[in-house]
Computed example of a mutant assay.
Amino acid sequence: MHRDHEVHLRRKGRNFGVLGVLLAFIVIVFGVTVAKIQTGGFSEGFDHVARPALVPSGAEEANE
């Protein structure tokens, strides 16, 4: 059997730290996605067109 060198032990600790940061990022992105889906945040697309939901109710008659 061989004993791990000190450098390998330090790298292992850093790798677990990076793993923790990546997992935290994934959990945050997943949580934001679930929250937006539950509140209806993805109901309108992002295709650079006018969104009728944002037009005030009196503005439609004023433009005609």
Rank of each mutant, 00 (worst) to 15 (best):
R11G: 01
R14H: 08
F25A: 15
I26V: 14
R3E: 13
R3A: 13
E60Y: 05
N63S: 08
D4L: 15
L23E: 04
L9E: 14
N63F: 11
L19E: 02
A59G: 00
E64D: 07
Q38H: 03
V27C: 05
E6V: 09
L9R: 15
L9A: 08
F25W: 04
A24G: 15
N63W: 10
V18A: 12
K12T: 13
K12F: 10
H5N: 14
H48A: 10
G31E: 01
T33M: 07
D47G: 10
H48S: 09
E6P: 09
H5P: 12
L22I: 15
K36Y: 09
F16H: 12
A50K: 08
K12M: 04
N63D: 03
G40I: 02
V32C: 06
A62P: 01
R14C: 03
L23H: 01
F30D: 01
A62H: 04
R51D: 15
I28K: 00
G58H: 07
K36L: 15
A53Y: 01
G45V: 02
E64V: 09
F30T: 12
L23A: 15
E44N: 10
E6A: 15
G45T: 08
I37F: 14
V18H: 08
A50P: 06
I26W: 01
Q38P: 00
A53C: 00
S57N: 03
K36S: 10
F30G: 07
E61Y: 05
H8P: 00
T33F: 14
H8M: 12
V49E: 15
T33K: 05
L54Q: 03
F16E: 12
H5Y: 02
S43I: 01
S57A: 11
E44T: 09
F30L: 13
Q38V: 11
G20E: 04
R51C: 02
A59Y: 03
R51Y: 05
L19Q: 03
H2V: 13
H2G: 12
F30S: 13
V55S: 02
I37D: 01
A59D: 10
G20N: 02
I37C: 00
V27H: 00
A24W: 05
T33S: 07
L9F: 04
V32T: 10
K36D: 06
L9Y: 06
A53R: 06
E60I: 10
F30Y: 04
I28N: 00
A35S: 07
A62R: 12
I28G: 00
V55P: 01
K12E: 10
Q38N: 05
R3S: 12
E44W: 02
V49A: 10
D47V: 03
D47F: 09
S43W: 00
L54K: 08
V7L: 15
D4G: 02
G17T: 03
V21A: 15
G58W: 14
V27L: 14
L54V: 05
G20I: 01
H2Q: 11
N63C: 12
F25M: 14
R11P: 00
